[in-house]
Design a protein around this nucleic acid. Sequence first.
DNA 1: AGGCAATGTTAATGCTATTTACTTAACAAA
DNA 2: TTTGTTAAGTAAATAGCATTAACATTGCCT
Lengths: 218, 218
Amino acid sequence: MTDSSRCYHHGNLRDALILATAELIEESGSTAFSITDAARRAGVSNAAPYRHFRDKEDLLDNVRDLAFMGLHERLEKTRDANGAQAGTVAAVTAMGLTYLQYARDKRAFFALMWEDRGQMQPERQNLPHKREGFDLLLTAIETYLVQTEIQSELSGLNPRAIRIATQLWAIAHGIATLEQNQLLDLFDKTAQADQVLVESTEGLLSGLVPEGSAPAGH
Amino acid sequence: MTDSSRCYHHGNLRDALILATAELIEESGSTAFSITDAARRAGVSNAAPYRHFRDKEDLLDNVRDLAFMGLHERLEKTRDANGAQAGTVAAVTAMGLTYLQYARDKRAFFALMWEDRGQMQPERQNLPHKREGFDLLLTAIETYLVQTEIQSELSGLNPRAIRIATQLWAIAHGIATLEQNQLLDLFDKTAQADQVLVESTEGLLSGLVPEGSAPAGH
DNA sequence: AGGCAATGTTAATGCTATTTACTTAACAAA
DNA sequence: TTTGTTAAGTAAATAGCATTAACATTGCCT
């Protein structure tokens, strides 16, 4: 039964519901979303989704997974596209720019990914996906550190690379948030998110010195 | 009629509802909040709130205002507490640390402040309050630039200060988000938000050079 | 063919937002 | 003091939602 246009049984309702939810969320945001709408769009009754998802949150979790996978895919593409110049500031910056672009293109997804739904169960935090995204950035940083001879070699989990990757992720995320809240051009009408990110990344990376050296402070 | 324990008329239902909403949100998050609950807690019927607020969102907007004012107050206190060492890296860092602490203490408020409710009307974006918070940070940065002689004098809106303030706000916000999502100790179990912020701030500020000089790149 | 499990359905229940039509009380003017 | 007016309550109704329970259909395995 591969024909999904049948009568009683849908064929692949689970995926259809996830897709419908994704569409609805992109159209009207996650707060407006209702499970009834998703069922309607998938052409089934309002109770059918409960055969595939524990509750509304469970369905949203699956869309969140989708969103994280989408971001991950883009980051991978960016990494591969910059394979030639791997280890340069430009390669690192490109990851951040991709992050910003994703937030712009998939605004509702981006909001969903980082939505605070209070005390969530650990298994509902999408931690694996978040970790995967971080991994990509981390590798880019580690490559950078080695290429620029700031770090002699990379062991599996380099503390320094982790710290820098964290900082870069934080700043990309922060800029995305400020941009979505129209706070970037609050004072400087010409401020652009991309430009701010480039400057920040350069600022953070340029402050780095080879291991063992004393940092340049004031 | 200052006695609010009267029968029919409440006396100050508007404020009571905002307060009740704030409490409920801090207890269970903003998604779980219902206007009915707030009315119950304030001891009035479920329709009474509509005499004071257009709809649910309007009520939430007022709590958002409250949240922004709370953050603003803390930032002011931090600025004043560090008045003696104004213009130092420590003074700037302290603002960021206050931001992080607020996100921890008032997690639900923090989430509410940055909640993405899709395409909101401009008047519902709480822009004035966001701007005020930015102002405080901006002043701290401008003082820093002058004190450290990186900038000779501050004109009203210094483009450079604005850029740096934006970067610092972004990174503080990003770190707060990562912390709330338990992503800081994903790889480095010992990573602490405060420490990451201190390092980031130092990293960004230490890269600065007096105006006119060429930045230290690779 | 028969039976079972998966996956639908309809019909509740109980919650919610919001509106409408009424009610009460405070206040100001006559 | 009486009398309107108005702000600020109430109850009742509508409509939508999440979720569950009881029932129906179908595909698959034996």
